[in-house]
Write a protein that binds this DNA or RNA. Structure first.
Lengths: 218, 218
DNA sequence: ACCAACTTAGGTCAATAGACCAATATTGAT
DNA sequence: ATCAATATTGGTCTATTGACCTAAGTTGGT
């Protein structure tokens, strides 16, 4: 039986914001702005992320939007921040069954990860984030946070699979795993050019990673 | 001794265009526009790719730019096209030394590929292309062309490394290799968050891929 | 009931976007 | 040298962007 959360797929929670002083309505406003902005980013890309469109999407005035975020880059940074938080907590909340034969847990996690990157939301968001990260140091930092969480997650499983490895080796392997998996986005992500060969690629990547971990020599 | 072309690193040629009817000056114009557009895309991203900026970069009028490309999307598509061609020919022109022990050629090619993705040009261009590919089918098609060339390249090497494998298996493995390598862009590409762990990641990925090819069971 | 937090409705403003065009200059084959 | 094809200029036009503003309303905790 699966866990309620975690389990068969990665659960990336809806965006939230740090509660701020003031009425609860104000927080709702911020959260709504972030979520609709994310929707816009996913559906139409960064180019469509204009203050007017966001305001329209929220059914509020541009003036009101400016009340919450005094500039566009404030809004964008808050959005990136919220996105990073959502993925970090997705990593932290993931719980796996530790039963089964050696490597089964790892294989399971790899499959879950590859399931998430094929998601429309994840494919679109990360392709946008990568482009932004090339030019915005802040975005790059958030991206690194997300990947650090993913590395933690895999390092733990690697540690359980190969208990004799020291922490540095675990984290090195885990980083390589995440790098390998993340890159699959471009091939088997949503609407990506090799989505039709998804099954085959998942199988190969799974096997390769499990073999890599089992055969690793410090 | 290395080959003149091919050899120690991937050589992505400068952008060119199909010669058109008219004066040679016209062709120079088109080529200049494409190259300066690429420069702008690499340096400042798709958002900076405006007709005015391109014209300024070329030292020509916006009106003249419109003479060459009647709309912006015409220009952008020609640019993507030229970029795809440049990478395809980079793949086709690559020649490797086939001497050395088993797997040496493969390892060499992997290192060359990873060398290219760490390039400023390649990192920036591909992160932009991925974002565009999510929304523009034409971009996706060009991207697929590029990857198909890369797959061909690796399939040949895989064939030489494991001559007993049939063509389908070769191409399957090659696709997995390219997918694994391409994804490293986001981690060890130019200005990317794990560039400082580049050496270690290259080593692990190299080993993993070579092991995968040598141990593959049809 | 009070008052700070929130929201709307209007608008202005300078900057920049892509598209378009008529007039002029250059080219190169004849 | 001519002249039609080609290339280039400099400008207009309309639309959109982010930022900013004032003045008037609504909401909700105390």
């Amino acid at each position: 039986m699966m866990n309620q959360r975690g389990g068969t797929e990665m659960v990336v929670p809806d965006l939230t914001a740090q509660p701020r002083q003031g009425y609860s309505r104000g927080n709702q406003g911020v959260v709504q702005i972030l979520r609709k902005s994310q929707k816009l980013l996913v559906d139409e890309g960064f180019g469509a992320l204009t203050l007017r469109r966001i305001a329209a999407e929220c059914g509020m005035t541009q003036g009101n939007l400016s009340y919450y975020f005094k500039s566009k880059s404030d809004l964008v940074m808050a959005l990136i921040d919220a996105i990073a938080t959502s993925y970090r907590s997705a990593c932290e909340n993931l719980e796996l069954e530790a039963d089964g034969e050696t490597g089964a847990e790892l294989r399971r996690l790899v499959e879950i990860y590859l399931g998430d990157i094929a998601t429309r939301r994840t494919t679109r968001i990360f392709t946008e984030l990568w482009a932004m990260a090339s030019r915005e140091e802040q975005v790059r930092a958030r991206l690194k946070e997300i990947y650090d969480s993913a590395v933690d997650m895999f390092a733990a499983v690697v540690g359980r699979t190969r208990p004799e490895l020291d922490d540095e080796a675990r984290r090195g392997i885990a980083l390589a795993i995440v790098a390998i998996l993340e890159g699959q986005t471009v091939f088997i992500g949503h609407d990506m050019p090799f989505a039709d060969q998804r099954e085959m690629l998942v199988e190969v990547v799974c096997e390769t990673i499990v073999a890599m971990v089992l055969r690793w020599e410090g």
